[in-house]
Design a protein around this nucleic acid. Structure first.
Lengths: 207, 207, 207, 207
DNA sequence: CACTAACCGAGACGGTACGTCCCGTCTTTCT
DNA sequence: AGAAAGACGGGACGTACCGTCTCGGTTAGTG
């Protein structure tokens, strides 16, 4: 039993198609039965795969759903709409569109809830979902700075803190509006939100 | 023969002590085992109550946790700290203190996740948690208007929309910071957030 | 629940009617749902009585069913059909007719089963059901002796043993045929049985 | 890809030891707590088996107890004691010895009671218990015919009816004496019974 | 080009919690 | 004062999934 400590392992390799099928089946099941109704046995059946195959690759429901949901947010992008206000409105509406999909709604909040007692899961969410989208804030800010809408920020540490703050404000407000308040995130709301974020409460009118 | 058409119901009345004990036991169990590990049988045992008593009053885990968590937020208040910025900072820190408690962290997000597929539950959350705290925004605004920090808002419909928007922004940002980004909501962050909310991105400095 | 639809409305003399109603409701429930599906709550509801009233008079399901079933067997009688063989055939068919009723089938065997671990219940069954019917054997024998079909039996102790033996043989055979073998107890079978009981296996023909 | 169309079923095979352990545990539990106190969860625990394993193989308490009790009767046999009377006495005493065991007493009557409302159960009892022991009557008769104690029976249909009749009389009388009358089935009673069965009531003396 | 190790499906395994039903007891209210 | 209504603590039900463990059989790389 000496060799094979590195590189090509002997035996039959894992099927590449299986992982894809499993993640797709996970999203499909999330749509139909939601997080709490989702069972790994059902996912395996939908994917045409044995339960053991699934457990060989993911340690449980939480990790599987994080991977399945993370892919959904990769379609976010920030086309240049000419002004910071328009850019914010655009990304808010894109984000809302993703949150309108059932697999994102129930999957995202559920894994966040689970992560409150599972540090490894929380870190996995931050890496796979949260930090992966922060580039949107950076792009939007530098574009606005190039337009002269925002001042330069010389202190890099302060700059990072501000990016985090803005990300939390945008993502938090949209999620709260969509999932907790359960009110529509439409163009009107997005415009009001962008106006408030840009000019603050003290401006004479928020809309 | 008109009896019992109103008011006093026949039979042994429900124990008032049971409800209190059950809700307290629910929070205790949330602290120790979290949402996914929470069992109604365990809650009943902790409360010194039969499982049937619990099911007679709540239809399931979701509804029970909503009620147990909602009580936590009733301790929020808005003491007058002299300025709108200070008031916002204060309520943000209070809210963060509640979200630091394990029973709130895991309970709140979990029921929100469940509510994405259960309209009755979503409505229950709105009534018991969200709308119950909106008075804080109203108080803060009228106090700020009395101080002259904010202009009057003549249109009542527009006024209500603004209250909702501000509530989503504050609650959303704090929840996202605390639970999704998993970063501390401390005095410094609260000050930055209040500054940004008051003056907007276009102000020269956020801190 | 208006109840008390008849006459005397002053006091509360319902006590007497309750026992009758409860026993009738027990038999009705036995017919519809059988022994294992019979619940005391259901019996109480059918009888228009509170559960507490029922428990005040019977200690449980077993005792209640013994009383309800015992009454069924009181309709057995032994009309003189002219010969011992005809008398035996007659009582066998009467007994079979009772065992064809669902409340007797399931009720009788169930309480016998319970009585294997409950001495008080066994004694109650013997008093209320078994010994109450032994007079049939006595009558049949003395009638046959008067006809000269059977010899006199001088020893009273031996006489009692024989009565018990014959009772066990008749009742046992009919119960076994009807409930265990689940074959019909019809005129033909009754005639074969009576012939065998009268003349024994060694007679050349049993039918 | 044609494989597994017959014979070898896929997946892990059922444990042979489990069935044995479960049936033994069922009898053990019947002895200790009786039919009405018997719990499938308790049986599973005693057998060192999960409740699901038990439900995978039996549909409920009734079916399980039929199988557990049926095995008890397989120890019945008919050694040649030299005469028909002695053979009958012998099998009666053997049967009584089995019915003296608590697991047989409460189990047998209970499933018979249940079978009054469950045709499938009744058929199962007939196959597993009743018909399985009828060979005893056949053996005893042919042995007696060989000895010249009984005449030959030419009509096969009549012959089968007589076997059923005798079986009902023997089994019924013993069960009734042991469980309903609750009197001992001892050598004296067995001798009286055999005498009556052989020679009938009309013979001058039954003992 | 046969070996053979690691994979695959199927499905039984020991468990845990579910939500329901009924038990037998106890309050409370109404008559 | 006595019966109805019905909540109470408790226990078993039969089901659904969990995550693990055999099984028989397949597949790719290596020796």
């Amino acid at each position: 039993m000496q060799s094979r400590t590195s590189g090509t392992r002997a035996g039959r390799p894992r099927s590449a198609a299986a992982a894809t099928a499993i993640l797709a089946a996970t999203r499909e099941a999330l749509v139909e039965v939601g997080w709490s109704g989702l069972t790994l046995g059902d996912v395996a059946t939908r994917a045409g795969v044995a339960k053991t195959t699934l457990y060989r690759r993911w340690s449980g429901k939480n990790e599987l759903v994080v991977d399945a949901v993370a892919e959904l947010f990769d379609e976010l992008e920030l086309p240049d709409r000419g002004s910071l206000a328009a850019d914010i409105e655009g990304v808010v509406l894109q984000f809302a569109a993703i949150l309108a999909r059932p697999e994102a709604r129930s999957g995202l909040m559920a894994v966040v809830a689970e992560s409150t007692r599972d540090d490894a899961l929380r870190e996995r969410i931050r890496e796979s979902i949260v930090n992966r989208q922060k580039h949107l804030v950076l792009e939007g800010r530098s574009r606005a700075q190039a337009r002269g809408e925002l001042p330069e920020e010389p202190d890099p540490s302060e700059s990072a803190r501000t990016v985090d703050l803005i990300f939390d404000m945008i993502a938090g407000a949209v999620v709260h509006r969509a999932l907790v308040s359960a009110e529509p995130v439409d163009t009107e709301w997005a415009r009001s939100f962008a106006g408030l974020l840009l000019h603050g409460l003290t401006a004479s009118t928020t809309a």
